[in-house]
Amino acid sequence: MAGTVALSVAATSITRTRATTEPALVRWTLIGVVLVFLGLFLAVPLAAVFSEALGKGVAAYFAAFREPDALAAIRLTLLTAAIAVPVNLLFGVAAAWAIAKFEFVGKNLLITLIDLPFSVSPVVSGLIYVLLFGLQGWLGPWLAEHDIKIIFAVPGIVLATIFVTFPFVARELIPLMQAQGTEEEEAARVLGAGGWQTFWRITLPNIKWGLLYGVILCNARAMGEFGAVSVVSGHVRGLTNTVPLHVEILYNEYNSTAAFAVASLLAMLALVTLAAKSIVEWKSQRQMAAGKRTAAEGKVR
């Protein structure tokens, strides 16, 4: 751990001079305030999850993952996220491009419509698919006739997950791309770069942090979503249970140790965040170093 910390110290303190940072006292006060707040709201609940999960020892903790139903739930959750995240990523980039790079009437309305899935209660977001595809719903009778299963099967779970994670990438990118403006892209265009080229070479490197956070949030929520999925899943053991639903089942079975053990698995997604950030940081540093080298050597530009 000491190594990575030292690295990040080196990485961030390069450009800061006295004029652009605060006195040490202010700095440490702010750090203290943030740590207390995050400690209260993040570390303590996290510790509580793990203390409950490990309450009956390490053996009981790992036994919770060996159960076939648990494995089936993990598989289903991974599958759901593997579909929902890329689809929403694609949408998010397209929407952010249209909204941030162009001026048009009704933009605020469109942004608010994109936000909408957040404000829909998970209870209702499951319900809307029931109203659409349920046996008593609009398309239900037709689907039943053709033996197509959407709700109480995997497609319904995926749809509900896409719905609840719909805005993440878009909302993460829109303010970022708006703050960045369009000058760089316009310059690239004027210099003769194609549309795709501009996007890949100029825009994407600029928005990588927003994109990463968007994907991380979207993925975390896709894997952790309970309410909406619970409505459309049907809770069939080993078949349509996702990890959060499996956690609920275990808890209802008075098996809290296993319930919290499986839940702690989701908490460990934080490790994924850690890894993803480190990779992006490392890559961009390498690129920057390489860029500096070439610039110094041949003055390409």
Binding site: V5, L38, L42, R221, G224, F226, P244, A259, A270, T273
Partner: peptide, 20 residues
Amino acid sequence: PGKRVVDAMVDLPFALPTAV
């Protein structure tokens, strides 16, 4: 010290199922 860990933990509220 520990900044990266704190940073990674921020997403916890999304990953943790709401019931948990």
